[in-house]
């Protein structure tokens, strides 16, 4: 659950950003109907571990449908997030499933993210203070939980996104002192239909 929340925050960060007045101006919205492909590197800094946990892989973001997050190194796994919930697949076996109905906070965060992806920040602003600096070619957005007593704030201190024409990095700072750095590379926006395996992953409606 916390996991899911963080993932969504990461994604929000990955795709959102901009200051009050400017966020709309600098934010690289994804047009509905198009798909964003890219690679990522993720580093988790967990207190008490000797070294950061590093992961590499690729991702697919489809507005109003979902996100596919494929880790290739050091372990192979596929995480699929849709409005219906989250699933994880390892070696073609589904090893985890979290239904949205059972995790309303998760479902809420996914909705915020999904709307932010296409440039609708109104929902996000109900939970986060958004500050933005820079211009379209070099911007920085900081999200901080509005309500310091909320369950969200109990886990999350801030989310920092940077980018130019695209989102380049996301840093998630957790309340327990852990942090996470994600960088996005080789991003491509396409309007051609999804490949069959990806479409299949996002279509799964089982609960």
């Amino acid at each position: 659950m916390r996991a899911a929340l963080t993932l969504v925050c990461a994604a929000i960060v990955a795709l959102a950003s901009a200051s009050h007045a400017d966020v709309a101006a600098v934010w690289p919205s994804l047009a509905p109907g198009s798909t964003l492909y890219g690679r990522f590197t993720q580093e988790q800094y967990l207190k008490g571990l000797t070294a950061p946990l590093k992961t590499e892989g690729d991702f697919v973001v489809v507005p109003a449908r979902g996100i596919i997050w494929r880790s290739a190194q050091p372990v192979r796994s596929v995480t699929v997030i849709t409005a219906a919930g989250m699933r994880r697949i390892v070696d073609d076996n589904e090893v985890q499933r979290l239904a949205s109905a059972k995790a309303p906070a998760f479902a809420h965060m996914y909705e915020l993210l999904d709307r932010a992806i296409v440039g609708d920040w109104s929902a996000l602003r109900q939970d986060f203070a958004v500050t933005c600096s820079g211009d379209r070619n070099a911007w920085r957005v900081i999200l901080t939980p509005l309500d310091s007593a909320s369950p969200l704030a109990a886990r999350l201190t801030s989310v920092v996104l940077t980018g130019d024409g695209r989102i380049d990095t996301v840093d998630i700072n957790r309340a327990n002192g852990d942090s996470e750095h994600v960088a996005f590379l080789n991003q491509v926006v396409s309007s051609t239909p999804l490949a069959e395996p990806d479409a299949h992953l996002l279509n799964d409606k089982r609960e």
């Binding site: 996991a3 993932l7 994604a11 997050w69 076996n93 090893v95």
Partner: peptide
Amino acid sequence: SRVVARALATVYGPEAIADAAMLR
């Protein structure tokens, strides 16, 4: 080993469910 693989996928997964205290 399959239970271990699931745990690893979770730990390395995007949602970062686990912190060091939990892992211990």
